[in-house]
Write a protein that binds this DNA or RNA. Structure first.
Length: 323
DNA sequence: AGGAAAATAT
DNA sequence: CATATTTTCC
């Protein structure tokens, strides 16, 4: 009956991805023009946005087009952007990158895919994709498609999905009625405060959809009238760099999270310092009266804190639909 | 292609 | 040493 209509409609609205979500990470990260420009004639770039100091974000660019994400590495062997040319202005990329050392290397060469760093933002996208698909359909391939992150490969998602599932499982055991779970299956964590196993850090940054925890009820049906946006987008351009490069090339950040005994007790948390991805939603803490005009039409203030602040979404009817 | 486990890197 | 991510096997 009609009831359903309004029901699903509401849900539909909530599920509507915001602009940010619609935009491919890669695109958001860099602009093709700049990227090209970089490779071709203007090696002047900041290439590196590497995080030299993550202490504070020095984002001067209102729209960081500095395409330089790939500084660390270039996942795509064929992509021109991969050239981490020396940044002329700023300093060189920072220090050794870890394993790859690719910073100063040339692109196009047998580049191995650098380690993908799952930043909270990326993870959020991942969770979002899984949520929309429903655990049922949440398979690597689909998730990957919906995420539409350049450079992301099925393997990456599969791997993360595996971990994510384990995380959910762990959560179930702990959150259930409580005392029940007797066995210390916790493996590692078992803190009273909640879920803070080291692994949870990343996962904790994004809220886990409630239905994920209940196996018994898929929460109504998720029949999507149309395929979720991103899935439709087919870009075959220089994709492998941005997101991947962005997310990837910065293992240094990892150092921060990777603290074995992590002491992330920030209640307000949610403010991760992302090197690149951060730029998408995390704007500088500039609270000036002067509004930061989003020069880009596609940029909406998506100030969503990874905390649990959800609800403020801009309804975007569809992706720019340009393509 | 999906899932799990092992291997490796950080 | 532990965790995160990749790679391999089923």
């Amino acid at each position: 009956m009609r009831e359903d209509d309004s029901n699903w409609f509401s849900r539909w609205e909530e599920e509507l991805p915001s602009l940010e979500e619609l935009m491919p990470l890669s695109q958001t990260l860099i602009t093709p023009d700049l990227a090209l420009a970089f490779d071709i004639t203007n090696p002047t770039n900041t290439t590196t946005t590497n995080n030299h100091h993550n202490s504070s974000l020095h984002q001067n660019q209102p729209q960081p087009p500095p395409p330089p994400q790939p500084a660390a590495v270039s996942p795509t062997p064929t992509n021109p952007l991969a050239s981490p040319q020396p940044n002329s202005g700023d300093f060189a990329v920072d220090s050794g990158e870890l394993g790859s050392g690719a910073v100063g290397d040339e692109p196009a060469r047998t580049l191995k895919r650098p380690r993908l760093v799952w930043t909270p933002q990326l993870h959020k996208r991942f969770v979002d994709a899984v949520a929309h698909l429903g655990i049922k359909n949440a398979v690597p391939k689909t998730i990957m498609q919906i995420m539409n992150v350049d450079g992301l490969t099925r393997e990456n998602v599969a791997s993360h999905l595996q971990k994510y599932r384990l995380y959910l499982k762990r959560m179930q055991g702990l959150s259930s009625g409580g005392a029940g779970a007797g066995n210390g299956a916790v493996g590692g964590g078992g803190l009273t405060g909640g879920t803070d196993a080291a692994t949870d850090h990343l996962f904790a940054s994004s809220p886990v959809p409630a239905h994920f925890l209940h196996p018994g009820r898929p929460n109504s049906d998720h029949f999507l009238p149309f395929v979720p946006v991103a899935a439709l987008q087919h870009h075959h351009h220089q994709q492998q760099m941005a997101a991947a490069a962005a997310a990837v090339g910065n293992p240094q950040l990892q150092g921060q999270y990777h603290r074995p005994m992590g002491h992330f007790g920030s209640p307000t948390n949610g403010q991760f310092e992302h090197p690149f991805l951060a730029r998408q939603t995390q704007q500088p803490v500039h609270r000036m009266g002067a509004p930061v005009h989003n020069a880009v039409p596609g940029f909406v203030e998506d100030l969503e804190s990874a905390n649990g602040n959800e609800g403020r979404k801009v309804l975007t009817l569809f992706p720019t639909g340009d393509d």
